[in-house]
Design a protein around this nucleic acid. Structure first.
Lengths: 197, 197
DNA sequence: AATCGTCTAGACTGATCGGTCAACTATTTT
DNA sequence: AAAATAGTTGACCGATCAGTCTAGACGATT
């Protein structure tokens, strides 16, 4: 039941927005009643945080596989962006819109109003960035790119990736994710190196 | 009166979110009553679109000045990011948070629900990008960077800038905007050129 | 059988929401 | 001066909202 609620919440919040998603709608979607909702979660905000964590947990094993140290560093990023593109394209075929990243939309929406939820967003984003950090550190160690400060470079790349996700959502254009690879190479300074592809 | 309403709406929507901003709160802030609100605007959505347009109109003259063709191309971008940093820092000192860009937060929040408002966001963003396009085209023409497709490069840079704005809002850290300059140079491929700074 | 713990149900609460509308005031036009 | 227009007011509307709470069902344990 708990999972049904977090899944339903994730779908609705991702598709619309946190504020536009009502507890009633979540319950309808989950096939639950309000009493059950409040049995498991103290509030809508607590559910949203749980939904983001649950979604992250599901995605993490995919990321572990894609970013495995056995995969060449730049190829990890290349595959990851393909993975994200394919995920968003599939979700688009189901609900008609490119939805971008829920961490960004929720984070952006509630950042000045709900510090608990915002901390959840921050924490998960940090974990996502750590995959980028290790890929970039490895690429630097292998002489594929120059990134003396892998962390800063990872944050830069991540910001660009985030911006592209937001743009894709606003413009409802999933191909922007695919095009992002060129940008990523620029940020990494790997544009003129015979790596990737 | 109409301006007081658009100003109030802009402040509240920027600071919180579109959904979390009520018509009552906007009227309170503007020193108006509901009847007046609905005399001037058909709906909350129409007011939000008008508020974004009004804000853009106010900013455009600043952008015209900063991106004037009499200013060296890369310096236009440099100055613009300083301008944005200073604006956000000032707004932060007033309300306690880094607010990022209202076009992004509103666009992201309502992109699947209100097509009129989304089109307004899209239109304004396109106009903002055109400043980037011309600066990059000029920089390419002057041999400062290599950007055979100025439009694509401008879109890439803009996406990165957007991602940084969103990050700054979620993390409430305005210095990310300042740090963005390094990223911009990477995206432009101007990192190793003796330009800017 | 009684008790306990877990979970479900749904009526209910007070507040808030976007929007409506008749009455009124102030200014402009005829 | 009268009429028309522009603008203001705020009570009101039905709907929705997050959350509360009591009652009940069910399974496990004593």
């Amino acid at each position: 039941m708990k999972e049904r609620l977090t899944d339903a919440a994730m779908d609705l919040i991702w598709e619309n927005s946190y504020g536009a998603t009502s507890v009633d709608a979540i319950c309808d979607r989950a096939g639950a009643k309000k009493g059950s909702f409040y049995y498991f979660f103290k509030s809508k905000s607590e559910l949203a945080a749980a939904a983001l964590e649950a979604e992250w947990r599901k995605r993490r094993s995919d990321m572990d596989r894609i970013f495995s140290p056995t995969v060449p560093p730049l190829e990890r990023l290349d595959r990851y962006f393909d993975y994200v593109h394919d995920s968003l394209a599939e979700r688009q075929s189901k609900c008609g819109s490119v939805l971008g990243c829920p961490l960004l939309t929720v984070g952006s929406e509630i950042s000045t109003q709900d510090q608990v939820l915002r901390n959840t967003v921050d924490r998960i984003l940090d974990q996502k960035i750590s995959y980028f950090v290790s890929a970039i550190r490895d690429a630097h160690a292998q002489g594929l790119i120059s990134a003396p400060d892998p962390k800063a470079k990872a944050r830069a790349l991540f910001a660009c990736y985030q911006g592209t996700l937001t743009q894709a959502r606003i413009q409802n254009d999933v191909e922007l994710i695919r095009n992002f690879k060129e940008i990523a190479l620029d940020v990494l300074g790997a544009r003129h190196a015979p790596a990737t592809s």
